[in-house]
Computed example of a mutant assay.
Amino acid sequence: MEKIMIVEDDLKIADYLNTYIEKYGYDVLKADDFEKLMDVFRKFQPDLVLLDINLPRFDGFYWCRQIRLESICPVIFISARTGEMDQVMALENGGDDFITKPFHPDVVMAKIRSQLRRAYGEYAAQGNERILQKEGLKLLPERLELRFHDDVVSLTKKEADIIETLMNRHPRVAGREDLLEKLWDDQVYVDENTLNVNITRVRKKFQELGITGAVETVRGAGYRLHVTWNGAEES
Rank of each mutant, 00 (worst) to 15 (best):
E2T: 08
I6V: 14
D9C: 12
E22A: 15
D27S: 10
V28R: 04
D32C: 01
K36A: 13
K36H: 15
M38E: 08
D39E: 14
F41R: 00
R42V: 06
K43E: 15
F44N: 11
D47S: 10
L48S: 03
V49C: 08
V49S: 02
D52F: 01
N54S: 10
L55R: 02
P56C: 12
P56Q: 13
D59H: 12
C64S: 11
E70M: 12
C73M: 15
V75G: 03
I78M: 13
A80Q: 08
M85Y: 11
D86I: 08
V88C: 08
N93Q: 04
D96V: 04
D97L: 05
I99L: 15
I99R: 04
T100D: 00
D106H: 08
D106F: 05
V107E: 15
A110G: 05
S114N: 13
S114E: 05
S114Q: 05
A119V: 03
Y120K: 15
Y123C: 03
Q126S: 14
Q126P: 05
E129C: 07
E129N: 14
E129T: 14
Q133L: 03
G136T: 08
K138F: 11
E145A: 06
D150A: 07
D150S: 13
D150T: 13
V152W: 01
V153N: 04
E159W: 06
D161E: 04
I162T: 07
T165W: 00
N168W: 00
R169K: 15
R176Q: 11
E177Q: 11
D178H: 12
E181R: 13
Q187N: 09
V188T: 12
N193I: 06
I199D: 06
T212S: 15
T217A: 12
G222A: 06
L225E: 08
L225I: 08
H226D: 04
W229G: 00
A232M: 11
